[in-house]
Nucleic acid binder design. Structure first.
Length: 425
DNA sequence: TCTGGGGTCCTAGGACCC
DNA sequence: TCTGGGGTCCTAGGACCC
């Protein structure tokens, strides 16, 4: 028997803004925004901030007037706080399904197909209430027969207060009427380029896309486009992701506060990013065999744009920071050109495998591996205990001319003992 | 030496997502 | 003055080979 599928999507409302608000009850009902690294642009807004006209990804300097006028609370991003909230919420959701797929920091798919539940709406309301009561974070829940429709259902739940945060698109008698009112750009997998393309062909709403000929879709939108269209018709094509595959790439990248014009500070930045990336790699118990370095001028500044990247394979997979820094600098040297003001750099590790599968190099004595492992272990433990960057490679530099700004960061209420919330009575 | 087609593999870049 | 960061997947095109 092939039982029809049933998915749920739990999505936190204005996640970062909601996290900040949990510790500042005074801000309930007040507008809040959270800024990107470098305090560059807006990456999260409370509903109140949306209402007064702050748009997504808006540069901060552009909305300072609005901030002042409406007395908007402004926060620099505090990802360790949000990460901790995310973990707590995902742990709660584990209790409500046999199969949970953590899709991003603030959303998760639940396979509800075989849950013995009579009233699915009531069940979803219970999930909402539990998450709200236990963490203080409001969530919306969409329910549908395919992941793509479930994503749409979630948007509907979020947009229409009448649904009280839950919308089930599965047994909707007038589903086509709903789809007709939604722009194709709202569909999961349709970005701004495809949206523009589809609009040119007069495919403007979701119903039109759903009814578009398979062959045409395959020709112009490739295999993924066809998958999306079939999912809109209620045919599941995107499964729940398999459990805990190793991550395929790990990235650290930053924009600089000021343009960097010389090689030395770039070398320090790249060494710092490499150091941080390999730290993440070790946290995951993995080794990697390939590193890619890229540098870029700003997209918005005057003068010529320059963006270049270079990757290199290591002789053997490793998680040793020193090995990677040497190769990263080699890559950087290859792509660095005088005469530009660099605004961004990044480091990407790929070829990631669990450490137990590590291929050792035939010509490297075994003690060398042990030495390196030991060194990394000590470094990680020290930095964990005494704060990150207590022990660092000299190559990461001390001046940090390239570093970034975070002026409005909230404390790490839940992950640092010295920053825990205090209540005065 | 020149000509050419077809195949594979790899990399960089672009599209998408949050 | 001031415009994010971390991911996945797909594909075009170059290098190389026969």
């Amino acid at each position: 028997m092939n039982q029809p599928k049933l998915f749920g999507l739990v999505d936190c409302n204005n996640f970062y803004a909601s996290c900040e608000r949990v510790f500042k009850p005074k801000l309930r009902g007040k507008p809040i925004i959270v800024l990107s690294n470098n305090d560059g642009c807006v990456i999260a807004r409370s509903n109140e901030a949306k209402t007064v006209g702050i748009t997504m990804a808006q540069p901060y300097f552009e909305c300072k007037k609005l901030v002042k006028k409406y007395n908007i609370a402004v926060f620099s991003s505090n990802f360790s706080l949000y990460g901790d909230f995310s973990n707590r919420i995902m742990n709660i959701l584990e209790n409500f399904t046999t199969d949970l797929e953590i899709y991003s920091v603030d959303e998760a798919f639940l396979d509800l197909t075989s849950m013995p539940v009579k009233d699915i709406i009531a069940y979803a309301q219970t999930i909402r209430k539990t998450v709200k009561d236990w963490t203080g974070i409001p969530v919306s829940i969409g329910i549908g027969p395919t992941k793509t429709l479930t994503k749409l259902a979630n948007k509907i739940a979020k947009k229409n207060p009448g649904h009280n945060g839950v919308f089930n698109i599965t047994d909707c008698p007038d589903i086509d009427q709903i789809l007709e009112k939604i722009d194709v750009g709202e569909v999961w997998g349709i970005g701004w380029k495809l949206r523009k393309f589809l609009h040119q062909y007069n495919i403007k709403n979701v119903l039109q896309l759903k009814n578009t000929d398979d062959e045409w879709v395959k020709k112009h939108m490739a295999i993924n486009g066809l998958r999306t269209v079939l999912e809109l018709r209620g045919i599941p094509k995107i499964e729940m992701a398999e459990v805990e595959e190793a991550q395929k790439s790990i990235i650290t990248s930053r924009s600089f506060r000021h343009p960097v014009t010389t090689l030395q500070p770039l070398k320090e930045a790249v060494a710092t990013f490499t150091s941080r990336t390999t730290e993440k790699l070790r946290e995951q118990g993995c080794v990697a065999s390939h590193i890619q370095v890229y540098i870029s001028t700003g997209y918005h500044q005057q003068g010529a744009m320059y963006r270049e990247s270079k990757g290199k394979e290591l002789p053997y997979p490793t998680a040793y920071t020193g090995d990677f820094i040497a190769v990263a600098h080699e890559c950087l040297k290859n792509i660095f050109k005088w005469g530009y003001g660099y605004k961004k750099a990044g480091v990407i590790l790929t070829g990631i495998v669990p450490k137990r599968h590590q291929q050792l190099d035939l010509f490297t004595p075994l003690q060398n591996y042990e030495k390196k492992n030991k060194l990394m272990e000590i470094m990680d433990q020290t930095n964990w205990r005494w704060g990150s960057e207590t022990l660092q490679y000299g190559a990461t530099g001390i001046n940090r001319k390239w570093s970034y700004r975070q002026e409005k960061r909230s404390p790490n209420y839940t992950t640092q003992w010295d920053q825990i919330l205090t209540i005065r009575i």
